[in-house]
Every structure is written in C-alpha cells, then in structure tokens.
Design a protein around this nucleic acid. Structure first.
Length: 196
DNA sequence: AAAGCGATGTGCT
DNA sequence: GCACATCGCTTTA
C-alpha cells in the first residue's frame, strides 16, 4: 500500500513537487486515478496567479502547503492545484491530467462522456470528473474528501513548456508521464525526459 | 489537421 | 474594458 502524502511532502519548490506528483494517485471521495500531467507555478513567475501577491481568489496559495487551491477558469471550470513550499510563498502545482482508475462510472456520468482517455485530459476536465467544487478551496489534501498516495518506483517524466499561458511561456514547468495516453496534449517532440 | 468562436466569472489596467 | 493556468463544437483546408 503506497504512502499517503502529507504537508511535509509539499514543502519543496513547485517544480520539484510537480515532478514528485507524476505517478501519484489522487482520489476525491474515492474517485480518481494516477496523476500523469502537472504544471508548476511560483510567486516569482509572471504566469502565476500568485505573482502579484495575495488576493481573495489566490489566498489559499499563500496558506500552508499540502492544501488545495481551487480556482474558476474562464468562468466555467473548476481547476485544482496543490499548494507547496511554505506559508506565504504563493507556490502551487496544477493537476492537468489523470489516468482514470477508480470510479470510472461516476466520472463518465459527471462528464457525460464514454471515452476514458478524455475523462481527465485537461485541468477543467479533471475538475468536472472528480467533482471539484469551490468549497474544497483551502482544504487539506491528507483529509477527506482527498487522498493523495505517493508514486511507487521510478518514472520517466517528460518536461516541456506550460500550456495556455502567454507570460513566461518558455519556462519548462510542464511535466508528464512519458508514454501516457491520458495527457491533455502531446509534448513537443524532442522534449527532455528525466528519471524521477 | 487546424483554426475560429461562444460560454461565462474574476481580476486587473 | 480586456485578458485569462479551458473546453467543445463548428468551419475551413
């Protein structure tokens, strides 16, 4: 049985934690699967919500690590981040894609879609499939309804530029499980691969 | 295969 | 106003 991640496991830099999370398992009320794609964001990063300091929306990013930061994207989707570093730092990891493993019937129901490859292939889709709601903002990731279980064994992790941003677009802070069929998009060919 | 666009909330200039 | 850490549908090539 893999180890459940707690606050201490989120104390590292956003990029470091983002790599650690590739291959980890995320369940929300028992529904979810293996995290296959993440992006890192940090205060010193023009693309981050936390870049210009605390606001009512992003305050969870400035709170303790190991908690959820949930934000509304394009007025429609709820997207889930894991807060990292330490209180006040404004760092987090966006969960961009999951390989569905548990509660697939419920995820299909919520998404109104059969194709398992598309259930959680993108941050908005993850939010819808896992039933993420704004009330989960700031909640601990080591308590109900969340469960985060550490990845087991070494993984090959693809590294590339983040998606859908204009500022700091070259920063290579998007990470994916090499060869996964559940990514939100392919990584550019020739992307670097690291062993984690 | 790619590009365009509507839906629609929230934060910033 | 306008941009935005998006998605799904439609149109064009």
């Amino acid at each position: 049985m893999p180890k459940a991640l707690g606050p201490a496991d989120f104390a590292g830099d956003a990029a470091e934690v983002a790599v650690t999370l590739i291959g980890a398992t995320l369940l929300v009320d028992g529904v979810g699967g293996m995290i296959v794609e993440t992006e890192a964001y940090d205060r010193e990063d023009a693309a981050s919500h936390s870049h210009s300091g605390p606001t009512p929306r992003n305050q969870a990013m400035f709170g303790p690590p190991g908690r959820a930061y949930v934000y509304r994207s394009y007025g429609i989707h709820w997207c889930l981040n894991f807060v990292c570093r330490a209180s006040g730092h404004g760092a987090g990891v966006l969960i961009r894609a999951i390989e569905p493993l548990k509660g697939i019937a419920e995820m299909r129901d919520r998404r109104g879609l059969e194709d398992v490859k598309l259930l959680c292939a993108g941050p908005g889709r993850v939010g819808q499939a896992l039933g993420i709601v704004h009330a989960m903002n700031g909640m601990r990731l080591d308590r109900q309804p969340f469960r985060v279980l550490a990845a087991e064994g070494p993984r090959d992790v693809v590294v590339g530029p983040r998606i859908g941003i204009s500022k700091a677009a070259e920063v290579p802070w998007r990470f994916g499980l090499a060869g996964s069929k559940f990514l939100s998009r392919r990584f550019p060919s020739h992307s670097a691969i690291i062993r984690a």
